[in-house]
């Protein structure tokens, strides 16, 4: 009889393992533990068992009953969880479909460069200032030591509004306007649009410049090198090699053109650097005493330096753009890349 009980347990557990639905489980319960179930049926024959075995048999059958009940309960609980998940899985969505929020737009690449440069100089203590884009000849030229009928005017082909009003050809007039109003020391940065009568792959009639000016007692050419070196290393990387070479700007003396090692060819010579291995990045110089004289600064007491750079050029080098006109065609397929 004990053996029969053991066999019953094996059969019941096997059936439980294959059961899948709630109905199966309750069928199994009925089949084994029900009033007309197999266990009950077996116990009906207990009278034929010798008395000494009776207590043991009773204990074993109770244990089996409890075991089966517990197993069925557990299986039912698991089943309920599975059922709930099945319902949720039926709600399954395609997670690879694109998101539904409005896609971000982009800031114009030149403006991104402007922000980057401004924030570097602001961290050096420079303040951002502005001036008019339509300027008096005086501020754009005369006050910057570029008199009428001077060949230096050839350096910039000018749009005229009237005989003495021009579209500013550089952001330098802002330095004059600020110096007229503010006494030194001075650290200013003036970004903005400038205009030159020129149009080809590397020139557009409008582009962006940033002009910087630092005036104080004891400012030297060495300081100019120091500040601009720190700036260019921030923009183009710590390993950037640069050189300062003499040049000419009417409003600075001595003047320096600053070149960096060509970022395209690493200095071996390529089309972008015209085989020279160097790229012209910015113009700079010590403020000419006659400019100080025009704004009533004492050039014996104060010295200073100014610098200017074209933003499109920097953006072109950074992003490998060969046609400057792309910046102003505003093709969304271009703008979205930055």
């Amino acid at each position: 009889m004990i053996n029969e009980l053991k066999q019953l347990e094996i059969n019941a557990l096997a059936e439980l393992k294959t059961a899948k639905t709630e109905e199966h489980f309750s069928n199994i319960r009925t089949k084994y533990l029900g009033r007309k179930g197999l266990l009950t049926g077996l116990l009906r024959n207990i009278s034929q068992v010798p008395d000494v075995e009776k207590p043991l048999l009773g204990k074993l059958s109770n244990e089996l009953k409890n075991l089966l009940n517990a197993k069925i309960e557990e299986a039912l609980r698991q089943q309920a969880i599975r059922n709930k998940e099945d319902v949720l899985l039926k709600e399954k969505i395609d997670v690879t479909l694109p998101g539904n929020a409005i896609k971000c737009g982009r800031i114009h690449p030149v403006i991104q460069i402007r922000r980057e440069i401004c924030s570097i100089f602001v961290s050096f203590g420079f303040s951002v200032v502005e001036g008019p884009e339509i300027e008096l000849d005086y501020y754009n030229f005369e006050a910057l030591n570029i008199p009428q009928d001077h060949p230096a005017r050839d350096m910039q082909d000018t749009f005229y509004i009237s005989d003495n009003v021009v579209l500013r050809t550089h952001t330098s007039p802002v330095q004059i306007r600020i110096m007229e109003k503010v006494r030194p020391p001075l650290r200013i940065l003036s970004p903005g649009k400038v205009y030159r009568r020129d149009s080809d792959v590397s020139h557009t009639p409008m582009f962006h410049q940033i002009e910087g000016l630092l005036v104080d007692k004891g400012i030297s050419f060495g300081d100019l090198k120091g500040i601009l070196t720190a700036f260019l290393k921030k923009i183009f990387g710590e390993n950037t090699t640069l050189r300062f070479r003499p040049s000419f700007f009417p409003f600075t003396e001595p003047s320096a053109e600053v070149d960096i090692r060509c970022v395209i060819c690493g200095g071996n010579g390529c089309r972008v650097c015209k085989q020279s291995g160097w790229l012209e990045i910015l113009g700079s110089g010590m403020v000419d005493p006659s400019v100080f004289q025009n704004v009533n600064y004492d050039s014996e007491e104060y010295t200073g330096f100014a610098f200017g750079l074209g933003l499109e050029r920097i953006a072109m080098l950074k992003y490998g753009i060969s046609d400057i006109r792309l910046f102003f065609e505003n093709d969304i397929r271009f703008l979205k890349q930055f």
């Binding site: 737009g105 403006i111 649009k193």
Partner: peptide, 9 residues
Amino acid sequence: GYTEIVNYS
């Protein structure tokens, strides 16, 4: 979602 453009003045 807006993208910045720069037109000639």
